[in-house]
Design a protein around this nucleic acid. Structure first.
Lengths: 233, 233
DNA sequence: CGTGAAGTTGATGCTTCTCAAGCGAAGTGG
DNA sequence: CCACTTCGCTTGAGAAGCATCAACTTCACG
């Protein structure tokens, strides 16, 4: 966990994150208080049910946020990329309600809870924008809940692939933009790794996707959307 | 939908809702702008995918918030009682991501979106508290998602009963505090009305609950918690 | 009472999980 | 450099859980 030095004023991630709504002089405060930390791929960032100490921003890299159920089964509730805030679920909590770990080597910005709350209380625009962000997150989470409850494995698999690509490679490229294990895809879709294998094989036969090494290429995004069958979105 | 008159300053619901953080003078603004409306049991309040016009507070009564899936299947994502805010999911949205309807005859307070946004922008404490409320809601929603994905029907039924009681009758009384149809319980637990019947019958045989007319009485809340098997909470 | 809606219960079949065997790629040590 | 191990992935068979369907009962309400 070596530290590197980045000034918040020059931080590239800032522009696309919610922190772009932060006042100049409080950005300097953030700059002095933050710590930049390096994480290896697969390293755990947040441990469920331990004390909430602060929040993170992803400077570079990728991460998954998940809840652990009985038997250690994981349900991934969010995928995060550079610029994204991480750990905002702990704002009103003593203990972390979720776990998080990296999907790649990453640099994270850490800021202590008290410091972040100070910034929030002095930046009403930032607070308001963060509120709107939370509203969006809530809507997304409830979409996940409905789909997990009502959709077939095939539908959930299609939705999972679209969701992954949407976060990590939203452009016109075919790659989903990240390397995930079958188990991790299962933890997103809410099924088992065996079902992931079978459904990926099916999609491949139907020429909807292509499996290229560890990567997944999406060939027919429109038909995947039809399969995913989202009433909205 | 007859209108009744209630002054925000004297509103009993205010004390337990997030609006207690609202500044006095803006409470008067709210008072002039709000509309109080009467709803019959089962009446729909919010129609999914229609234009967001404002938000509601429950003055008296009870409501359910749900998402509609393919085939009209409903997933209840929240239960609300008097004092609760309703429709905050629409804050950052053009169209409602959810539906809502009453579970009893209710009085609701309506305030237009622009007016509420004005209040938020002038009440940083309220905004901050609402932010914390959203953080809690998000954590709850993600617990729902994990449970829907990983739990058996029996576990989800136990969890659903605890959740219902927790909202509508959090005290030491045995009643769950609300009359729901089997279908509605199924829409909370993420199963079918037949499974609800069967599992309620099982719970009754095991002396965990008692069915008294339309009400459900919980006799052994501790064992229900064990069955629900929540890692936390 | 009579009618319709809601709830109960049992039989059936499908979906999906689990388990197990086989495979290939990557890493390790001799 | 090559056996050997390990790990993740694939594929199939079997079993279990759950939804669906249907018949029946109960309840509410005129």
């Amino acid at each position: 966990m070596k530290k590197i030095s980045v000034n918040c004023r020059d931080c590239e991630s800032k522009d696309c994150s919610v922190m772009r709504y932060c006042d100049e002089k409080w950005l300097e405060f953030l700059n002095q208080r933050k710590k930049v930390m390096s994480y290896k791929k697969g390293q755990q960032i947040i441990y469920e049910r331990t004390t909430v100490d602060g929040i993170f921003f992803i400077l570079s890299g990728k991460a998954k946020v998940y809840k652990t159920g009985v038997g250690g089964k994981q349900q991934i509730v969010r995928l995060a990329k550079s610029g994204d805030i991480l750990g905002h679920r702990g704002l009103n909590k003593m203990y972390w309600p979720i776990s998080a770990s990296t999907l790649e080597d990453s640099y994270l910005c850490f800021i202590e809870k008290n410091d972040f709350e100070t910034i929030l209380k002095n930046n009403s625009t930032l607070t308001y924008q963060l509120l709107l962000f939370f509203a969006d997150e809530l809507v997304l989470s409830e979409e996940i809940a409905r789909d997990l409850a009502q959709s077939s494995v095939r539908e959930k698999m299609a939705a999972a692939l679209l969701k992954i690509k949407n976060v990590f490679s939203p452009g016109s490229g075919k790659s989903v933009g990240v390397q995930l294990s079958r188990q991790e895809i299962a933890d997103i879709a809410g099924t088992t790794k065996e079902q992931v294998s079978k459904n990926l094989a099916d999609f491949k036969k139907e020429k909807l996707i292509q499996l290229s090494g560890k990567d997944i290429l999406i060939h027919d995004i429109e038909r995947l959307k039809v399969i995913a069958n989202h009433p909205c979105s």
